[in-house]
Amino acid sequence: MVKYILKRLLLMVMVFLIIISICFVLVKLLPNKPAEQFGKDMALIEMRREALGYNKPILEQYVIFLRKSLLGFDWGVSESLYLGQDVWTKFMEKMPATVVVNMYTMIFAVPLGLLFGIYAALKKNRWQDHFISTAVIVFVSVPSYVYAFLVQYFLCFKLKWFPFQVKAGYDFLSWDMFVSMVPAIISLGFGTVAGLTRYTRAELTEVLTSDYLLLARTKGLSRAQTTVRHALRNAMVPIFPMILGEFVGIMSGSIIIEQIFGIPGVGPLYVASITAATPDYNFFMLLSAFYTLIGLLSGIIVDISYGFIDPRIRMGSKK
């Protein structure tokens, strides 16, 4: 097991380094010199670029980047979005908004998803199951921004229950902030609940038809007992890693939902860093590294957690 984890981690570091290198080279190939404009001191800009080392060959810049950013953890200063501010500080400042919104979503979505899934599995092929399954198909397929529009139109505009955009400020855990986040949470939650419901239902129905449950019933356990103690536990083996993966994924959040509801998170920052007239190298590199790392990590955590939850599964073994 330890060997397997080490192997996976090493491979991950390798993949990560290659991706970052590709991103670095590609983004450095872009022109990012500000256009000449009235009121801009081009000599000053040129001096700053010289000082930042933008005029050196790419390979040299790459070595500096590796040494400074990846090893020294200094990601530089912003050049166009927040001129002169430290990229890492700004990033950490934006992080809580993303995490808080997604955390709330998970807190509501996971129990609901499990509940619906279990209910549908227990009522298999009855109208309740058909109803839930149909709803799941719809909610899984329809893109989250469509719900976002509906939520914004009906709950925010017609009924005026919630504000259109998330409240400004940094008191992320306050009640007002929570209320203003509700539309975003609902829009994000639909998809998560539906996905989890579908998965739980599929796993649980499979377990419920297995022989050992019949044995448990015949030896005198009630239906509730067999479901909770035997079926659910075994069904959780594949479900739990999925939930874990989602939790890791919440760090990266949903860029589009953040954009729609004006959440001051990392998503809009990323979009801004690449759609800006002069691409912000440092933000782009930091956020690309961040998203890549999150993606790779969630894959590994899901794989490894299988082994911990169910000792019968031996990841990476030959058989």
Binding site: I19, I255, P279, S288, L296
Partner: peptide, 22 residues
Amino acid sequence: ERIADIVYGIPFMVVTTLFQLH
């Protein structure tokens, strides 16, 4: 498989953006 892993690991948005810009 490793090559596929690397390509798969690059976030899609990064790929699109770089292609758009370049």
